[in-house]
Write a protein that binds this DNA or RNA. Structure first.
Lengths: 135, 135
DNA sequence: AGGAGGTGGCTATTATGCGCATCACACACG
DNA sequence: CGTGTGTGATGCGCATAATAGCCACCTCCT
């Protein structure tokens, strides 16, 4: 029922990236801002890069930059990029076979969790990073 | 971002308890209904018992019974009883000290997660077991 | 050449799922 | 009234997986 530390760090890294006046920002500066080791930051930034959320520039003057506008980027994007799909219950996974299933829409509990999950997801995808721009 | 298997099982156990026509129900029958081993079921039932959600009766004709009416018991009760407090982010814990804190209400991210968390909790405490009574 | 990120693997810690052994209790039956 | 049997209570322990974080080496750009 919790996002991982990694996802939390990812959010901080995106925030640090967004508020930095001089992109591209090297991982060292980002990790300092976000308060984690550079090694771990690199791992997280790689995931963000693969997901197309940030761009990475190698080389002497390289670093990271946001690939999408803050108002286009939501908490949901970042969290699912790091933690994988948001699922309140494991029974919401695609390949889960419920022993209590009665019809194709699954058991009543499944349906309830499915609805709740959709709501949570919707909320997370509603909160974009422009909300945090002036903090 | 997921409830544990244990909490999921707990929900199934409560459901089995609720739909059983002859309380008190021994753990053996409940575990069979809910599809888990009796040992694990006992551990979960103990937690439910300590939380006052079910009553346990020792002895030859003993077993478990619901201590509260189904319409008074919600998914939130059962989940928090097993998994502990619902927290979308670890920074919502009471003893967490945020490095980014700016005032007593915490950083902007904290505030957002706090609100989301409250919403989720509210939803989970809105869904009581009478919804599942006739399934 | 040197400073940047990319990749994969590695370790330590914690959470999770579940089992085992033993004790405590309540009823039933002799 | 005592003892046996079936029930739950308790605590220990372990196997597996997830998580958090680190390291070494490679690639790429300037």
């Amino acid at each position: 029922m919790r996002i991982t530390h990694e996802a939390d760090y990812a959010i901080r890294l995106v925030y640090a990236l967004m508020t930095d006046p001089l992109p591209p920002v090297p991982a060292s500066r980002l990790s300092e801002q976000a308060g984690l080791t550079i090694r771990f930051a690199l791992k997280i930034l790689r995931k963000l890069s693969q997901a197309g959320i940030v761009t990475a520039q190698k080389g002497a003057t390289g670093g990271y930059a946001l690939a999408v506008a803050p108002e286009e980027l939501t908490l949901g994007h970042v969290i699912e990029c790091i933690d994988g799909p948001i699922r309140l219950n494991h029974c919401l996974a695609d390949d889960y076979i419920c022993s209590r299933v009665t019809d194709k829409s699954g058991c009543r509990f499944h349906q309830v969790f499915d609805q709740l999950n959709a709501k949570l997801k919707q909320e997370l995808y509603r909160i974009d990073f422009s909300n945090f721009q002036n903090d």
